[in-house]
Amino acid sequence: MTPGAQWRAKVLARRRSGRYTVLTVTAPGVADRCRPGQFASVAVAPDSGLLLRRQVWLGASSASGRDGGALELVLDPAEPGAARLADSDKGALLDVIAPLGRPFSLPREPLAAVLAGSGSAAAALLWLAAALGAQGSRFTFVHLPPAEPYGPLDARRLAADVWAPAAAEADTLLAGLAAAADVVYSAGPGTVLAGVAAAAGATPHQAALQTGLVCGAATCTACVIPVRGRDGVSRMVRACADGAVFNADLVRWDELGTIPPECHDGAPA
């Protein structure tokens, strides 16, 4: 993973999107390197007593403009640290590291896709949707419960179909949509993505995993998950450095949060 750049980002604008807050911040020399599926880590002011950085999804980037580039940071104020960040006024300075993680891989040719996301992580999918649409791909957007949908109006503008199923209906709906699609893209917390992975079946699936609190420099090993390598060997890997986008077929979804016995020789690589 290429290390993210760290800089003092100035808040250029703040807007609400349902319960979420979107901050547009300066990102000179960085914005043009950011891709859908990547994230930022943002420090909460130390006087808050909150010492871990927050994983914040990138909703868009602009490499042009007066400030030499800008990024959209999408925050869910349900979490206290994110709430502090969401209160940042225009002109405030934030300690940002970005871009972090691997982005979604775009298909070489237009195809049929399902985009399924939950909460603020859906911002990564809406950014991806714009890229897929520009490429001529057709896609269906699914707002997954239980979180309030992020950007429902944008989803309706970009996608051929938009769904917001109840929890009891989500798996059946996803399985049907995935069976008719060439690829599934998902984003959200592990519990939600595990359900998408099961429903996606044999359809190729890229999953962007939300881990929440991060160190930002891939040093803390607090975000490890068990992943099967292409050599068949499972290892604990850091979601921040080796994800956040994973080939969902290789993630051992049922064992998130655990250290499977055969991974015992697999220190984070």
């Binding site: 010492l51 090993t221 697999g266």
Partner: peptide
């Protein structure tokens, strides 16, 4: 010997502090 580290969550915030139970992961 190599150690995979402890179960998650391994790191949580506490007022003005962190509490870690990384479990000494290493090769």
């Amino acid at each position: 010997a190599p150690r995979p580290g402890g179960p998650l969550p391994r790191l949580v915030e506490s007022p003005s502090g962190l509490v870690n139970a990384l479990g000494l992961p290493g090769p």
